[in-house]
Design a protein around this nucleic acid. Structure first.
Length: 211
DNA sequence: GTACAGATTGAG
DNA sequence: TCAATCTGTACT
């Protein structure tokens, strides 16, 4: 059977942000680098819905040099540095001018991992294997390191870029496999916003970030 | 010009 | 539990 590989188009990113955050689970991110392709399956996401969301960088409708990519029409990359060390990959959603985005928090590595044995392992084997979890893209900072993403991807259009895009490979994550939970690391936003269950992940997937 | 905190991570 | 590490942002 032929595997379907369809690049996600603008319509996908124009869905309501919470829906897009859930739909992104099970989609594949592809970064073409040199002659290789780094490919990962998205297994964890978080939604940020400014300007009302106190945890969002666009809270209150704030526009800065850093966050302006959040306002782009759905399908653009908003990437920024936290703690002076780690890049965070976000994808803008919704129409132009509305600061909503989805943070990609974890991937299941599909190809590109330096150990070629890796791609033949299924998730259960990954969990049981002795491979160092250290280099896994199982966290927002580690994911960017694994995919080799940095500021040069700021504002990149995922529907048009020749080096990075998202694919639908015909995989459908059933509703019962999607878990909604509180977002991570945003307690400063206050209980109301910190308690919103806008983090989604694939149940039992070993590549979901540790909390 | 200067102070300051952060959508994390890994070591101790 | 805590330091690393640095840029954007806000304020003097």
């Amino acid at each position: 059977m032929k595997i379907i590989k369809k690049r996600l188009g603008r319509d996908f990113y124009l869905q309501p942000t919470l829906k897009a955050a859930k739909e992104l689970l099970g989609k594949y991110i592809v970064h073409r680098l040199g002659g290789k392709r780094l490919v990962g399956k998205i297994v964890e996401t978080e939604a940020y819905i400014g300007p009302q969301d106190k945890a969002s960088h666009a809270y209150g409708g704030k526009v800065t040099k850093r966050n302006r990519a959040e306002y782009l029409i759905g399908g653009h990359i908003y990437i920024y540095l936290v703690y002076g060390m780690y890049w965070q990959l976000n994808i803008s959603t919704g129409p132009e001018g509305r600061p909503e985005c989805v943070l990609i928090r974890a991937l299941e590595p599909i190809s590109g991992y330096k150990n070629p044995k890796f791609k033949t392992l299924n998730p259960k084997q990954i969990q049981n294997s002795k491979f160092k979890i250290q280099n896994f893209p199982n966290g927002p900072g580690k994911l960017c390191r694994w995919l080799k993403l940095d500021k040069s991807f700021y504002g990149e259009d995922l529907t048009k870029s020749k080096r990075i895009w998202l694919e639908d490979r015909g995989e459908k994550i059933s509703k019962s496999k999607i878990v909604a939970s509180k977002r991570i690391g945003i307690d400063y936003a206050g209980k109301y916003w910190a308690d919103k269950k806008w983090r989604y992940y694939i149940k039992d997937n070993p590549c979901v970030s540790k909390t």
